[in-house]
Amino acid sequence: MESQNTLKVLLDVKNLTTRFFTDDGIVLAVDNVSFQLMEGEILGIVGESGSGKSVTSMSTMRLIPIPPGEITEGQVLLKGRDVLKCSEKEMQDIRGNEIAMIFQEPMTALNPVYTIGAQIIEAIRQHSKMGKAKARERAIDLLKLVGIPAPEKRVDDYPHQLSGGMRQRVIIAIALAGNPSILIADEPTTALDVTIQAQILRLIREIKETQNKSVMLITHDLGVIAQTCDRVIVMYGAEIVEQSPVRPLYKNPLHPYTEGLLSSIPKMDEDVERLNVIEGMVPNPLALPAGCRFCSRCKKAQERCKAEKPTLREAAPGRLVACHYPCEVQTDE
């Protein structure tokens, strides 16, 4: 963690704002979000449904449907180049070769009428001029890499012949086909059972190590983040409310939302009579409050929180928080 300053910035997102223009009004899905993805790290983005975590990741790959969506502001600098200014043709090069996506639903992300081999080969040949026979060999290598037993046989299977966990491995193989430097995994294990989830998370960590990838892992599960990521971004109401290396976030959360969330999850190693709760619900994205978006649910909220929106500022080295009255930073390690 100390060497973080010396790490290379791969992806630099600045003031990203994405809106959806719907019949009911304008939905501010991502509001002025800035963060960096370093080389060789797993960055977790955690938040509840509607917090903007998925739209953030989709926006960085320009996968937002336009209309109704629109990236109205900001820059996404990939190795210094602004992705948002690239032409659609240049984007096709970037997707797959530079950034690739691992989707949530292993059941629907694969085409049921093609063999998994054909789908991996398609991804390989899209990005290089490899011959068919060679691409097939590479597809088998990729299947081996993601831990599919007997890949020479499995390459000719159709998706329905595989279990959910195996399909998720195939999706990861397809994402790796163009040898991208960044993998975006959007809830990669949500549809899977815990024992399979543990296998897939381990695979993602292994791939990060052996293939030297950077990973953006989007999830709603703070447990997954704790076990997998190096750094974490907490989103609430389309904004980043806290950003921190993983360990201090769990030991000493700064934003009242993070604190509330952590204390409300039942834990395996302790018994409590009642769980702490965060009262209320997430704000309506069509009518976000003017001040702090968490203030109606916050125990610490003051008058100031209703009127004035807190900005994301540094509370400790490497730790950012957007709150007028954050929890105290503990410095003992």
Binding site: S163, G165, M166, V194, T195, I196, Q197, A198, Q199, L201, R202, D221, L222, G223, V224, I225, A226, Q227, T228, V246, R247, Y250, L262, I265, K267, M268, D269
Partner: peptide, 19 residues
């Protein structure tokens, strides 16, 4: 296999293989 919300609790010795 349950991911604990505590980064200091890494326990993986019993990871189940297969499905």
């Amino acid at each position: 296999a349950v991911p604990e919300p505590d980064p200091d609790l890494k326990k993986e010795e019993n990871l189940l293989s297969g499905e």
